[in-house]
């Protein structure tokens, strides 16, 4: 198991490097002149040229790429923001926890509400609760979350004055972004859970559980749901990706200074060090989450754990043979 985890973490390295190269290349070819953004429209061509040389933008592509990779992966220093002049690292240290908190809260709410809804829908298949659940989830899957967030700002912030609509000064500020962000997640979790549960609920071991005299709740959550979890956990990885992406939008709508806002301002102002390092960080976070998902599989399903353990067993066996 440990070997397997280490192996999976090692495969992350080439992935992250590849992401870095791709995002570097994209930003290299994106039209727009960072020098002009920094110095303003009135700068002379000579000033611009000097600025470009200062930023290293005058170098050939491969030289720039090499410098970027060297700075990021060897020196572990993503540089300073061209516009603000602050080190990117300092900014990230404050912003990453905010974005992660927002994404995890969004996802947690999506799971905590979505899964019980799906279970309820499945056990009441084709009855009223199921139909309500499915119509509701179809609606929220179809509504774009940014539109929903804007409507929520208008209703709860401007009309009713119930909740603050920007900043992150108190816990109240988090309610609207988290709820709006999690609605599509709740909807898709509910649908996925429902179909996974429907498959499991007809299985023989659920009949066995019923024949033992277990109460319906225990049958649902002790016997059926754990067996329906595998497809749900797979989905959870993608769900977190969506939450991370969604937080970019939510942070902008609700003016929360996290990575999302940092990234979007970075993109509009051609602040290359900011954009590149944020994307690489996101890639690392996402990669680690995917490994976590795989590890969680093993804890949820003993059969998968057995496969992993066999792998490490084989590895040990192979080493022994090599030594001999």
């Amino acid at each position: 198991m440990i070997n397997y985890i280490i192996k999976r973490l090692l495969t992350l390295i080439p992935v992250v490097i590849a992401v870095a190269i791709v995002i570097f290349t994209i930003m290299y070819f994106v039209p727009g002149d960072p020098a002009k953004n920094i110095l303003g429209q009135d700068a002379t061509e000579e000033q611009l040229q000097r600025e470009r040389e200062l930023l290293g933008l005058a170098d050939p592509y491969f030289v720039q790429l090499g410098k970027f990779l060297y700075q990021l992966f060897i020196k572990l220093n993503p540089g300073t923001s061209w516009l603000s002049g602050f080190p990117v690292m300092t900014e990230l240290r404050v912003r990453i926890p905010r974005t992660l908190l927002l994404s995890f809260l969004t996802m947690a709410l999506g799971v905590a509400v979505g899964i019980p809804l799906g279970v309820t829908a499945a056990v009441n298949q084709n009855k009223l609760p199921d139909k309500l659940c499915m119509i509701g989830s179809m609606t929220f899957i179809s509504i774009p979350d940014f539109w929903l967030a804007l409507e929520a700002v208008i209703l709860f912030g401007l009309r009713l004055h119930w909740l603050p609509t920007f900043g992150m000064s108190s816990w109240k500020c988090w309610i609207l972004p988290v709820v709006c962000g999690s609605l599509p997640g709740i909807a898709s979790n509910a649908r996925q859970t429902r179909s996974a549960m429907l498959e499991v609920i007809r299985s023989d071991y659920v009949a066995t559980a019923k024949a033992k005299g277990l109460a319906p709740g225990a049958i649902k959550y002790k016997h059926a749901l754990p067996n329906a979890l595998i497809p749900l956990i797979t989905m959870m990885g993608g769900h977190l990706a969506r939450c991370l992406g969604g937080s970019m939008i939510l942070e902008n709508i609700f003016s929360m200074p996290g990575m999302g806002m940092y990234l979007t301002t970075g993109i509009t102002q051609r602040d290359y060090p900011v954009v590149r390092s944020v994307v690489v960080i996101l890639a690392i976070v996402f990669g680690v989450v995917m490994v976590l998902v795989d590890i969680v599989y093993a804890f949820v399903d003993p059969r998968i754990k057995a496969i992993y353990e066999n792998q490490t067993f084989n590895l040990a066996f192979w080493r022994k043979r090599k030594d001999a």
């Binding site: 023989d204 066995t208 067996n227 399903d301």
Partner: peptide, 10 residues
């Protein structure tokens, strides 16, 4: 069917 009558996760 004993193959399917036991909960595989327990």
């Amino acid at each position: 069917d004993p193959m399917t009558a036991l909960n595989p996760n327990m």
